[in-house]
Design a protein around this nucleic acid. Structure first.
Lengths: 231, 231
DNA sequence: GATGTTTAATTGTCTATACATAATAATTTC
DNA sequence: GAAATTATTATGTATAGACAATTAAACATC
């Protein structure tokens, strides 16, 4: 093979030297140019290798100031927020959903703020229960900005869940997500077949597409649900 | 300014064309070479721009097969699991921690399984309370594999929290994380100043470093805590 | 028709060079 | 001495060219 270094191998090599303690956290490492010299590679290649490490949060790079090993590496986890149907079907269970409520109503203040609507503007309010083998799996409370997605008014939400309809129709939007624990209200408790006050894992999302706020949703999972990932 | 395109602007431009539906999910986009031609930039630049989109999961690239728009973009959220001290100090509060318990004991079965220890092997068991401005913030229940990290036996955990000590001493390990909601037990409730049964946001982690299982930890945050991120 | 081989298209990535940009350090000015 | 200016240095990134690696498709062989 040729004597070239790949940016991957360089990345790994540098990473190892960092973890071995050669440059303790907080210290400045040698410059790109020096490292490239040392490994006999082009500066661009070393640049790429170091950028990978910078992306992963291991080092911080600043023009003129040099490359610095980060003091405490915060763990970065990639979480894939699964489509509920996929999650259920992956476990071999039958997916089902039922629309518990579907109405157009003035958005309450909190929702209006999240969707950047004027207070009192009407929006579509949906409550949906997702089932795994007939058992309740998650309870969804969703508001949709009708102005941004007029087509949803006529969507066949009995066949395709609101979640999937929106993902299919308005893809690649960006948004905020927050994870928390909340006590089940009487409505969620009844839907999920648990007692009010039970600890529910809750995911709230607000998504938009280029200035247009689409939807805000709160998903409460049945008790015991865990969201897992590797890091 | 100069007429150059940056890979960032190109990335954005392509992303916009995708979200606008020019290339629907599943279809192959024009080749790097063609796009570079179209935008009058070097192929390397377009390559970098497309790599960014590939990293974010929007497109998939294969040699010879070309670049394909991914069918259903499962929402991928990057979550930074914050170091508790940083999280508290970022909000301008004073960080504190106190070790509620520190003992060496035989690992219960569940812990032994997670740390790949033989049942009954002794391990370090720590219970720690993290405080924000004297108020309880999070409760940590941690087991540490002494064989993997013997130095922890003599670590000054009153000064540096177990969390930080481990991160500093055994950095860059990999691990599993799971998020869930759980009802406060009497111990957590007392420590966090809430009532038993309250809904707590809980993060469990097991980390290892090259075959050696280091530690498994369950963190319960005070009621109302939210883990937020953008996607 | 099934299987193996060659071809060609496409992305992956390194090199060398050039210039842009940012931030520190040194210098000048007042 | 403080403030403003200039110089220096490290990283950011674009470019053109070259070759490697992968694999779909076309072709050849049995």
């Amino acid at each position: 093979m040729n004597p070239h270094h790949t940016h991957q191998s360089l990345s790994l090599a540098i990473r190892n030297r960092i973890t071995a303690g050669e440059w303790p956290p907080g210290t400045v490492m040698p410059s790109e140019t020096d490292l490239a010299q040392e490994y006999q590679c082009a500066r661009a290649t070393m640049n790429r290798a170091l950028q990978v490490l910078a992306d992963s949060g291991l080092i911080e790079r600043k023009r003129r100031a040099g490359t610095r090993v980060m003091p405490l590496p915060s763990s970065l986890a990639k979480i894939e927020i699964p489509i509920i149907r996929h999650e259920i079907e992956k476990r071999g269970a039958a997916f089902g959903h039922s629309i518990l409520m579907r109405e157009t109503a003035p958005a309450p203040e909190k929702v209006a703020r999240q969707l950047h609507l004027r207070k009192g503007t009407r929006a579509l309010h949906l409550k949906t229960l997702y089932q795994s083998d007939q058992e309740p799996f998650a309870y969804e409370d969703r508001w949709v900005n009708i102005q941004a997605v007029p087509a949803i008014s006529t969507a066949p939400l009995d066949e395709v869940s609101p979640n999937e309809w929106l993902v299919r129709d308005v893809p690649y939007s960006s948004g905020y997500v927050s994870f928390s624990a909340s006590a089940a209200g009487s409505e969620e408790a009844a839907a999920l077949g648990t007692r009010p006050g039970a600890a529910l894992f809750t995911v709230s999302r607000t998504t938009w597409l280029a200035n247009r706020f689409i939807t805000t949703v709160t998903l409460s999972y049945r008790p015991g649900y865990q969201l897992q990932t590797k890091l």
